[in-house]
């Protein structure tokens, strides 16, 4: 519901481009390619919200890309992403330009939300599940304790008498 309201007001949407840069690029050139990509988005009227520097990751499977009739195989690549706000017509232009980029193995354009989507809290569910029975046991102990004392007192009285 919120998303549709945003569309009516500004006619721009939040997008995210994830990309894999070819591992043939040297480590020093990465910031240059990364900068060019950000400039491209800004030139198309995009506002960058958040991004991450391309990092070398091992790929889960080998990918191939044909550039100038040469098929190259990749088992690792630099993975990076940029989140930005852009008018929906401009995104098609961005896609066409990215299609021509020889540095990119592949990329993915997604509609997303402005908030940070990477969950900070992890494994909370399991912890809360474990704590639940412990709390119940404590409650039971508290209620049973005063009864125990009275019984002990009676027992002591009986012993003294």
């Amino acid at each position: 519901m919120e998303e549709t309201n945003e569309n009516v007001e500004a006619s721009s949407r939040i997008y995210e481009v994830a990309y894999l840069l070819s591992s043939n690029i040297s480590e020093e050139e990465i910031p240059v390619v990364y900068g060019n990509l950000k400039d491209l988005i800004i030139n198309l009227g995009g506002e960058i919200i958040s991004d991450e520097m391309p990092k070398m990751i091992p790929l889960s499977y080998t990918m191939t890309k044909v550039v100038q009739n040469i098929r190259s195989k990749f088992t690792s690549a630099f993975f990076g992403w940029v989140k930005f706000e852009m008018k929906s017509e401009k995104v098609l232009e961005l896609k066409k330009k990215l299609d021509l980029d020889p540095n990119l193995i592949r990329f993915l354009i997604l509609k997303t939300v402005k908030e940070n989507t990477i969950a900070a809290k992890r494994f909370v569910y399991r912890d809360s599940k474990r704590k639940m029975p412990i709390i119940k046991k404590e409650d039971q102990n508290e209620t049973s304790l005063p009864i125990d004392k009275e019984e002990i007192d009676k027992e002591i009285d009986a012993m003294v008498a």
């Binding site: 994830a18 997303t112 908030e115 989507t117 990477i118 969950a119 809290k121 992890r122 909370v124 569910y125």
Partner: peptide, 19 residues
Amino acid sequence: DYFSANNIKYIDYKDIDIL
């Protein structure tokens, strides 16, 4: 369910540990 218990509204494809 896991996502509503952890208050995750948007399931991110980058969060491989969760996926």
